[in-house]
């Protein structure tokens, strides 16, 4: 995830641009991910298994590196990992588990 080309604006330039509703720094997926690195997250896989931990980093495939990871299956902790690499194709969502 490099910073090189600035992403295109969300909508095409418009003659009558309405004022942006509220400019919070969380909009696009990229912005969300920038804000959530280093925070506690819940990563849910398509299988329904959850991984809770601190998000170290991720890439464009949604491959994820987590620290202090707990694996939750049906509400029970089933494993703990110091570090974990999660392959992105399994990821259903990444949810912030603390205030951003």
């Amino acid at each position: 995830m490099d910073e090189s080309p600035p992403p295109p604006p969300d909508d095409a330039p418009d003659t009558q641009t309405p004022p942006p509703p509220r400019t919070i720094h969380t909009g696009s997926p990229t912005d969300f991910l920038k804000g959530v690195v280093g925070k506690k997250v819940i990563v849910r896989l398509n299988s329904g298994v959850d991984y809770r931990g601190v998000l170290s980093c991720l890439d464009g495939y949604m491959n994820i590196a987590l620290e202090q990871t707990e694996e939750h299956v049906e509400g029970n902790v089933t494993n703990r990992y110091g570090d974990a690499f999660i392959r992105g194709n399994n990821v259903l969502y990444i949810s912030a588990a603390e205030e951003l």
């Binding site: 601190v54 170290s56 980093c57 991720l58 890439d59 590196a65 570090d83 690499f85 999660i86």
Partner: peptide, 16 residues
């Protein structure tokens, strides 16, 4: 975007 503690820049670093 620096890895929070262990100097990991991207997920594959963990594997490397």
């Amino acid at each position: 975007m620096d890895g929070s503690s262990s100097g990991i820049q991207e997920p594959f670093d963990l594997i490397r």
